[in-house]
Design a protein around this nucleic acid. Structure first.
Lengths: 206, 206
DNA sequence: GACATTTTGTGAAAATAAACACTGCGCGCG
DNA sequence: CGCGCGCAGTGTTTATTTTCACAAAATGTC
């Protein structure tokens, strides 16, 4: 199954569908039409159907989609069937908050360790995972086959830290630093830039 | 100047350019070529040039762009010339972390108040702004002409809270709840869904 | 002051993404 | 048991976005 043919945007929307399905599941809904699911995901029904055909046919004409079955298929495609270990680098305000954010675990990600330039800094609460000094990154990563990292360090050191992560074998980075990381082709980066999101909003309400 | 003709994606990239320019400014760089600026923003040079032509001509052929002038132009277009007041709703882990995040103020946004269902909850530190009960939202908003809100409440109440915000006059919402908000056409929503970003990354490293 | 060099600006082409329009399957009702 | 309705699947069209290719402009050099 060559997944290279699925457009990036489609993959992103699959996650939205998956989320919406999870809510339907929680409400014991058994089947859902493309129209209803599309609305919950904020897209057009035709787009939803097109997205799904990239990897198979799952609906029943005249009836809709079986919530459980489709949800399972999406899990399969998205590769979230098993728990994915992640590390977090930069345990400042934002990093600490993310460590306590329950959403990651709920979606199948386990933050197994955090790293910080000042690992001994007094933190207001227990963060649930050990906070280790940066120097330990290489050792932990090589011993555990971690492929993903959440980067919440200040912008001025982000590139440098990212370089270290990549050298240690990290293949995917969720970057919160307000800077575009320069990385090799085999490394994937998703940027979350809160100030830019606000700025973007402000443009559209002028 | 009809700004409706500028594509949404272009507007988003303008913010990236603006960021990159800010760094150049800090380094006392006076001019920059489209190639260099594009690299810093993670786009192709032709795209950068095309983006800029949507609202004017700012470069000097053979030389490049004047960092200060272009930066000022972008500020103008993006509407971030003056401080924009914002409220934050949901002062849990994530919300509290965002209140202490210095990036907003740096980009011209001032969080003037926070709201929470449990305004008296003991919080580990002073958050820099008052945390008020939800019921106060209407009063504060009507007295201060706030148009933007950051929404960091749990998913199961997000839609309801958003409805209240919209009724109180909010026109733009930065939504961190893992749900697609249903809003009227005149309201803009940007979603930041951390779990989805991770999920998306994990797909591309399979 | 002409010429080589650099780099922007932009119409045209290509690629990508979204929407439409229609086919036909399957369920349920009569 | 067959007929009609509802809704998924999909080839085609349209719209949007990105990239290309090249002309035009400014700079600096000799």
């Amino acid at each position: 199954m060559s997944k290279l043919v699925i457009p990036r945007k489609t993959v992103y929307r699959l996650s939205l569908y998956y989320r919406a399905l999870a809510r339907l599941k929680a409400n014991k809904v058994e089947t859902v039409s493309s129209a209803a699911l599309a609305k919950a995901a904020g897209v057009k029904p035709t787009q939803l159907r097109k997205d799904l055909t990239y990897f198979g046919q799952f609906g029943t004409r005249g009836l809709g989609y079986n919530v459980l079955a489709l949800s399972a298929q999406l899990t399969e495609v998205l590769g979230t069937t098993h728990l994915q270990p992640v590390i977090l680098v930069g345990a400042g305000h934002l990093g600490s908050a993310l460590l306590r954010y329950p959403g990651f675990a709920k979606e199948g990600f386990e933050v197994i360790a955090a790293f910080d330039a000042d690992a001994t800094r007094k933190r207001s609460r227990d963060l649930g995972v050990p906070v280790l000094p940066m120097e330990e990154i290489g050792r932990i990563l090589s011993s555990q086959r971690i492929k993903m990292a959440i980067l919440t360090v200040p912008g001025n050191v982000a590139q440098e830290v990212a370089n270290g992560l990549i050298e240690a074998g990290v293949l995917a980075i969720l970057n919160f630093a307000p800077i575009i990381l320069q990385v090799p082709d085999n490394v994937v980066v998703n940027n979350v830039d809160l100030a830019i999101e606000l700025e973007n909003l402000s443009y559209f309400i002028q």
